[in-house]
Design a protein around this nucleic acid. Structure first.
Length: 588
RNA sequence: GCCCCCGUAGCUCAGCCGGAUAGAGCAAGCGACUUCUAAUCGCUAGGCCGCAGGUUCGAAUCCUGCCGGGGGCACCA
């Protein structure tokens, strides 16, 4: 069965106005109808104001002509077009057209949402924790935002390839492996540890101990350096230990991923080590093309676009003086691999905004190398820092990094306190589950609902609030609708498009209908907070409707229509929350 | 020195591909539970949209220059 896209109401209006303009004023045929939501009607067109100078008429006159043309079109879903102010065109939709929109969206398993990203192979690089290190607050945004984009783009038809760029390689592993080798009694495997600690937590501590030994004991430092060489040379015992560290770390990461409900799977991991074998070839290719040149014994690319403090070009370190490769080289290999082997049409790097220069240089190099061509989009999806209540980067009271697991625990605890204080009928098991869903959802929503590029303040009290633009508010709105639908039973309902609309019903339909277009915008502009804003508007519109319009107690046909509105609202909220990566429980 | 991001109500934030009196939430004040979940809703109050120019019929929105905050600029990732 072919799945049809249901064109949004605003789109229908745009077409109607555009046609009316073409009929009434052929000289400006094809002009943008400039249709927006309106406080004064369902929609408004501002086209006449801008077009008037082209037609050498007054805006009001032009608007009148367009309105007459619009009102004369019997097939249009615009019931009324009227002039207001200096030339605004207020547009009101026919009530049956609004009801038919509800019917059309409900008839579709995907609510009539189209697939504007259909077939576009999109690589999303996100999360990227470091092996043997605990995930901390710094991994929160990349993981949550990246996963949301994966969900939205996938829903819109994109062929999404998740890429978890694990920090699984580097000289620090030599030190750690050497230390483990000398301390066989150290406990860090997950099956050796109690529930209160994790492998990465233990490894993090061991790494610190190794670092201290490295600094204090020259003999150990020497053995650690030798171990780095052994690791890079592929010494079997050393590699075995490294693999064990990687496996154990992944075990801990996936505990967090499962808890967060992110889609990443172990097979989505292509860490730094994955690219090791490609690095010499990448370097050779850049050197052969003359993009990478020798400087002070290293091989670098001089940017043609950016200069540094001394006025000289900024450089990308392609190969270090000592012959080793760093982060720059790995990212060059990464972008080449994603284009050449994964055949990406679009590559998204969900990484901290502080790395914007780095990605600018990597993209420049990839363009100059001929990998990144005009048909391919590479975007640094940057985001701001998570701040503490003091407005400074979020740290523990003692100034340490905030562990992700502890942060989630705190949010869930807070949610649990909030829920248990207000509710009477939940079993302890239900309470635990709902607190988990609410707490995790609250954290994710707080991260997604603010504009991506700005820093935001991590405030647990606010994010678990049942009021305001929070995840919990949306979840709660959803449960209220579910409650009505449960009482209504699952009977098939027939919507009667001839019934009149209450203003709150009208507003609710308009709010729900905006969902599809907002999703397409998120897919294009990669700004999840727009989806949050739209869902919040929908939830508020539902609440207004709920206050004004009894559903179950309404007479037959009215009741059926209102149940349909509940269904559309519930399904839209549930779909929206799912795309944000947030649970939509049926009871709270 | 140069580049990037940010500056909107007391606080946290939307709005920024130009459009009518600049919106939410929190906090403050007032009010509403015989009603499908009051975990809610309504009302009131609160803003030279950092500053100054420019473009435009029209600027929070676009351009330029300042001011203020944050970040970044070769062998760390």
């Amino acid at each position: 069965m072919a799945e049809h896209e249901v064109p949004s109401l605003i789109r229908l209006v745009e077409i109607a106005v555009s046609d009316a303009i073409t009929r009434a004023v052929p000289e400006v045929a094809g002009a943008d109808p400039v249709v927006r939501r309106s406080e004064h009607a369902d929609f408004q067109s501002n086209a006449a104001l801008g077009l008037a100078k082209r037609t050498r008429t007054r805006p009001a006159e032009l608007a009148t002509t367009v309105a007459e043309s619009l009102n004369a079109d019997p097939g249009s879903s615009v019931a009324d077009a009227s002039i207001s102010g200096p030339g605004f065109l207020n547009l009101t939709l026919a009530e049956p057209a609004l009801w038919r929109q509800v019917i059309a969206r409900l008839a579709s398993p995907r609510l009539g949402v189209g697939s504007p990203e259909q077939g576009r192979r999109t690589v999303v690089d996100y999360s990227g924790p470091n092996i043997a290190k605990e995930m901390h607050v710094g991994h929160l945004r990349t993981t949550i935002i990246g996963d949301c984009l994966v969900r939205v783009l996938g829903f819109l038809g994109a062929d999404v390839i998740r890429q978890n760029h694990l920090g699984d390689w580097g000289t620090q592993f030599g030190m750690l492996i050497q230390y483990l080798d000398e301390h066989p009694d150290a406990r860090w495997h997950h099956d050796q540890l109690g529930a209160s600690t994790s492998t990465v937590s233990a490894l993090d501590d061991l790494y610190r101990a190794a670092r201290a030994a490295f600094d204090a004991d020259p003999a150990f430092a020497e053995r650690a350096r030798a171990r780095v060489v052994a690791l890079q040379a592929g010494d079997p015992d050393t590699i075995a230990c490294w693999k064990e560290i990687v496996a154990e770390s992944k075990f801990a990461f996936w505990e967090i991923y499962r808890r967060l409900g992110v889609l990443l799977e172990p097979e989505d991991s292509d860490g730094e080590s994955f690219y090791n074998s490609m690095l010499p070839d990448v370097v050779d290719e850049l050197a052969a093309d003359g993009i990478a040149v020798e400087s002070h014994g290293a091989l670098v690319m001089f940017s043609e676009e950016v200069t540094g403090p001394d006025g000289n070009p900024v450089t990308l370190m392609v190969r270090k003086q000592d012959g080793g490769y760093g982060y720059d080289t790995t990212d060059l290999a990464t972008i080449r691999y994603r284009i050449r082997d994964l055949k990406a049409d679009r590559i998204l790097y969900v990484v901290d905004s502080r790395q914007s220069l780095h990605f600018r240089l990597v993209f420049e190099a990839a363009r100059r190398a001929g990998w990144l061509t005009d048909g391919i989009e590479a975007t640094h999806v940057s985001y701001g820092t998570v701040l503490g209540p003091d407005g400074r980067p979020f740290k523990t009271r003692s100034g340490g990094t905030v562990k992700l697991m502890e942060l989630l625990d705190a949010a869930v605890d807070q949610a649990k306190a909030s829920v248990s204080e207000k509710t009477q009928e939940l079993t302890p098991e239900d309470l635990t589950q709902i607190a988990e869903q609410a707490g995790i959802g609250a954290v994710k929503y707080a991260d997604l609902s603010t504009s991506r590029t700005k820093d935001y303040v991590f405030d647990v009290d606010r994010m678990v609030s049942f009021n305001g633009n929070t995840g919990v508010y949306l979840q709660y709105a959803h449960t209220r609708i579910c409650s009505i639908l449960r009482k209504a039973g699952n009977a098939e309902i027939d919507v009667d498009p001839a019934l009149p609309l209450h203003p709150t019903e009208r507003a609710l339909i308009l709010a729900a209908d905006a969902f599809a277009d907002v999703l397409a915008e998120v897919g294009r502009d990669l700004e999840p907070h727009r989806l949050c804003g739209q869902l919040y508007e929908l939830a508020k519109a539902f609440t207004d409707f709920y206050e004004a319009c009894p559903v179950l107690a309404a007479p037959g046909p009215v009741r059926a229509n209102r149940i349909a509105l509940c269904q559309l609202s519930a399904r839209t909220l549930r779909q929206g929350l799912t795309l944000l990566g947030i649970a939509a429980p049926e009871r709270m």
